[in-house]
Amino acid sequence: MAGTTVIAVNHVTKAYNSHRAVDDLSFEVRQGEIFAFLGPNGAGKTTTMRMILDILKPDSGTIAVLGGPLTEATKSRVGYMPEERGLYKGVPLLELLGYLGALKGMSAADARQQAIRLLERLELGEYRNKKVSELSKGMQQKVQFIATILHRPELIIVDEPFSGLDPVNTQALKDMLLELRNDGATILMSTHQMHQVEEMGDRLLMIDHGRCVLYGPVDEVRSRFAHNAVVVRGQGDWSVIDGVKRVTVNDNGREFTLHLADGVTAAEIMHRLAVSPDHHVSSFSLAVPSLTEIFIEVVGGRNNHA
């Protein structure tokens, strides 16, 4: 099944009055991957996700989910956690989860059983009969995550799943997402936390002003933005090495980026450093930019032009 298209967005446009929130956007999400959906605030991410979920209708273009247009039946195979968090305040957890499960077509018994299992799993078992208003914000967010995956969806769409969570709960959620992916679920995740994408994401899409600006496997995108440079740690005057055009000190002051002249490879530099008696190298790596840097470069650059 791996590689099957789960979401196919095809030349989709959506405008609010004269403002184009999504502009001729096309991409696909494949079975069993964690697909990261990136972009600055107001880029059109939420609108796109709402169109995938058939909450909003596109002005033009087509969207296929789980093999066709989203129907009532396929909706039950999708789980969605919107960015704006909220739950009925005065309702006990089990009852709330039972209702949301029922809306997804679960039987009362199944919803209850599954809710208890997931609440236990996320250490909320003792709160099962408590009202939402009695929970902390972080707990409420975990409950919302449970509501999203309660009905064992094949496609999980989560908008900023980690925002507002402490590191322990972030890890717990991350583990569950990875586990769900390993069990065959497809995950579309919108986030601003680039290191999460680097750690978890298989492929990514970055949009800005409703248009696609980056799209592809995470590693490939990063290496595409790699400049001809290496990052080293150690002692010595790095600028005297043949082929090094320029040296910059990295943020922490212990690392140096050596920008290489055209035609010079990293392997050649490594060789020269290894034989040089004046240099002592404790670490050597290719300078692959972080997604944050790429994000700032791509989005910041575009906005400066705009």
Partner: peptide, 15 residues
């Protein structure tokens, strides 16, 4: 209340 508690979007993704 559903709008204020932000439940609306979750409900609308099912109903």
């Amino acid at each position: 209340g559903e709008k204020e508690s932000r439940m609306m979007e979750i409900i609308l993704s099912s109903v």
